[in-house]
Simulated scan of single mutants.
Amino acid sequence: MSGTTMSGATTSPTTSPHPGRPSLFKGRGRYQLMVLGAVCCLALGGVFVRISEVGPVASGAYRSLFAAPMLLGLSVAMTRRSTGGASTPAERKATRITLRDQLLIALGGLFLAADLCLWNISFLYTSLAESNLLANLVPFIIAPLCFFLFGDRVPWKLVLPAVLALGGLYVLVILGTGLDPTHLRGDLLALATAVFYALFLVVAKGLRERYEATRIMASLSVVCGVACLAVAAVLGEKIWPHTARGWLLLIALAVTSQVLGQTLMAHAVKFLPLQLAAIFVLLQPIAAAGYGFVLFGQHLSPVQLAGIGILLVSIFWAKNLLEGRK
């Protein structure tokens, strides 16, 4: 594609004096649309969980299990494309997952299962916007987590955005809900989601350095799905949909939230500045708020909106600092 564009630019008599700029802008705009589409897909997770015919944990199980073969298919296609359709025995041996990494996949899958279980249940008690937002407080959990696990130094510059985040939490959860027990339960579950997702990211990062992303996500999804099914059975949730619509909703959940959203995001952020990508990611709670308002009549008070605004600023600030920007 780039070669064709450059060729056309050099032969066209109407080429602008800066031929690279329009194509660069056009290309970046395409990836911005991809990230925006990914955000909208990811925010749909709570919608499908709320209207699913099965329990929230069972919905998470199907989301992962249905996504696994799709991700595995992507992995096989990408591997064949990179090797020209053939691989030597040495190459296959080099990509074989070791026993140690298989155990890490199992651990990461369990962390991802805990993340999905808690997050999906939180949708039943709090608004889609709050649940999506609180689950995105991962930057404030990753730093101390890496300190305790790996001895990494906690950046002191993260203290100010962390204090701001605590203020946002106070406004959103304490002042905004008046400590309503049901609402508070949902918010606490969403916060716990961020902890387990941070643990999952730590494991996934190490695996990603040694294996292709879709292959690892396919394996993690299988472990996550099986674990979620077991938890759903223990909780006594309804596990089997009773109509074709119920199955279609679960397939749509897997395609939008697990495959399409994650794949579009992973592909597009590679071609965008991190600061711009981070801004788009913060649109997920806003998209969820829109879904909640239109589909479920979920209204946010001015105090809750203020708390959400403070948290969005703190998360964006923390991401900038952790990515090495002032």
Results as ranks from 00 to 15, higher is better:
L104K: 11
A94M: 09
A113W: 02
L112K: 01
R92C: 14
P89F: 01
T83S: 09
L65E: 11
F111S: 08
A86H: 12
T83F: 06
A94C: 10
T98D: 06
V76F: 14
S75R: 01
A67L: 04
I105R: 03
L71T: 02
T79P: 01
T83Y: 04
G84L: 00
T83G: 12
L65N: 05
R96L: 14
L103G: 07
D101A: 03
T88N: 12
R81Y: 07
G85F: 10
S82V: 01
R100A: 15
R100N: 11
R96E: 14
G85R: 13
A94G: 04
S82Q: 05
P69C: 05
G73E: 13
A94T: 08
S75D: 13
L103I: 08
R81L: 00
R100H: 15
A77F: 12
M78R: 14
S64W: 04
G84C: 02
L72A: 14
A77N: 08
P69V: 03
S82N: 03
P89I: 07
L99Y: 11
F66K: 12
G109P: 03
S75G: 05
R96M: 15
A113K: 02
G108H: 12
L74E: 10
S87T: 08
I105C: 04
R92Y: 13
R80M: 13
R63W: 15
S87Q: 15
E91Q: 09
P89R: 00
L71Y: 05
K93R: 09
M78Y: 02
G109T: 05
R81E: 03
R80N: 05
A106I: 01
T98Y: 00
L107P: 10
P89Q: 05
L74M: 14
S75A: 10
R100L: 09
S87C: 04
R92D: 14
G109N: 05
S75I: 11
M70P: 10
S87F: 09
T88S: 15
L103A: 13
L112C: 03
L72F: 11
A67D: 12
G108Q: 15
L103V: 11
S75N: 05
F66Y: 11
A94W: 02
G109A: 07
A90S: 06
G109C: 06
G108P: 09
L110A: 15
R92W: 13
S82L: 00
R100Q: 14
G85C: 11
Q102R: 02
S87M: 12
G109L: 02
M70Q: 05
P69M: 06
A94Q: 09
I105G: 06
A106D: 00
L72Q: 11
A77P: 06
L74C: 13
D101S: 04
L112M: 04
A68N: 04
S64P: 00
A86N: 08
L110P: 14
S64F: 10
K93E: 13
T98K: 02
